[in-house]
């Protein structure tokens, strides 16, 4: 037994020495770093605050696939799902601001702070760029009695709380999209949260609910096969994939809501590094192969540079603050 303990002690000492040596070795290059943006010299991680296989994940993977050649270093995806993205947002904003941890955040980052449940904050990120934007849309069964958005909303107005509107989770962007419609038109829905867009669409197909407020891409297959129909999209212009579907604006309702995804690094990341990342990811975004992939996935590409993206997020942030307040979605912690 004594011998064992001696061995344990020895190994511990050796590993400690390694730690110390590691600190010393690592500290030197950091001192020189500011002027020489020799970046990147090791693999870059993209935090995806959602599970593997979803839209955000696919987008990030497709981008990483292109960006790794441009940056000359591996770009790996780290999925950190949970709490409407909060887990990943928080991990991303508290990461070391050296540019090696990029986060792909999305609309919920300007919503969850208002819900009073988490410390996610888009101001803790230096945005790199916005990548994608998808509008919300109201979709009903193809054999539903409403032919136009107006008929649907008139029915909802006449029968407050009777139209069951599925969304992808409480406080999710699609929940707030439906709430925005309520806010702007004075109707009252019965919001039914599901564990994502797909289960909500399934419930609609099965007739458990009357309508869903998700993106056109998420109902694309069922619309194409004639089982569902889209009444209107909440954006400025019609969707490329569904040119015959009118926007809310065209039908006389001032409602523009959508989800978006963008890239950012923690605050404090050196300017030149952000620029290198921006240039690489922008180039990846312009790659025809990537554009084709995004197209097939039904993800609308909508580039915004860092400055505009910041303004855009600030506006959304203020907007949702009012809406969450109005809806009483804030979780009071007693």
């Amino acid at each position: 037994m004594k011998k064992t303990w001696a061995m344990v002690a020895m190994v511990l000492v050796v590993s400690l020495m390694l730690v110390v040596a590691g600190c010393g070795g690592g500290a030197k290059p950091a001192e020189k770093a500011p002027e020489a943006p020799k970046f990147p010299t090791k693999q870059i991680e993209i935090i995806v605050p959602a599970g593997a296989g979803g839209g955000t994940d696919m987008l990030a993977r497709a981008m990483a696939n292109k960006a790794k050649d441009l940056l000359g270093q591996p770009v790996v995806i780290v999925n950190k799902p949970g709490g409407s993205g909060t887990v990943g947002f928080t991990a991303g904003q508290t990461a070391k601001p050296d540019g090696y941890t990029v986060t792909m955040f999305f609309a919920e980052i300007v919503i969850v702070p208002h819900l009073g449940i988490a410390q996610a904050d888009h101001k803790l990120f230096v945005p790199i760029m916005r990548v994608n934007m998808d509008p919300a849309a109201i979709t009903v069964k193809a054999d539903a009695p409403w032919k136009t958005l107006k008929e649907f909303l008139d029915y909802a107005k006449a029968n407050p709380g009777k139209v069951r509107m599925g969304n992808s989770g409480p406080g999710s962007i699609w929940h707030l999209a439906a709430a925005t419609v309520e806010d702007k038109t004075g109707v009252k829905f019965n919001h039914v949260p599901y564990g994502g867009a797909a289960p909500a669409v399934t419930a609609l197909l099965g007739g458990a609910i009357e309508a869903v407020a998700v993106s056109p891409a998420e109902v694309g297959a069922q619309v194409a096969s004639g089982k569902l129909k889209i009444l209107g999209v909440m954006s400025d212009k019609r969707e490329k994939a569904f040119p015959e579907v009118k926007t809310f604006k065209e039908q006389g309702y001032e409602v523009v809501v959508g989800t978006w995804r963008g890239l950012g690094v923690p605050k404090g990341t050196p300017e030149p590094v952000v620029k290198i990342l921006h240039d690489a990811f922008k180039k990846a975004m312009d790659d025809p192969g990537f554009i084709a992939q995004a197209d097939k996935l039904g993800l609308g590409l909508a580039y915004l540079n860092a400055a505009d993206f910041t303004k855009f997020m600030d506006a959304d942030f203020a907007n949702y603050a009012k809406l969450v307040d109005k809806l009483g979605l804030k979780q009071q912690k007693k």
Binding site: G83, S84, L115, I117, G169, P170, G171, P193, L329, Q331
Partner: peptide, 10 residues
């Protein structure tokens, strides 16, 4: 444990 799936309460 976690956010309530129906109303988002932690």
């Amino acid at each position: 444990v976690g956010l309530d799936n129906l109303n988002g309460y932690p």
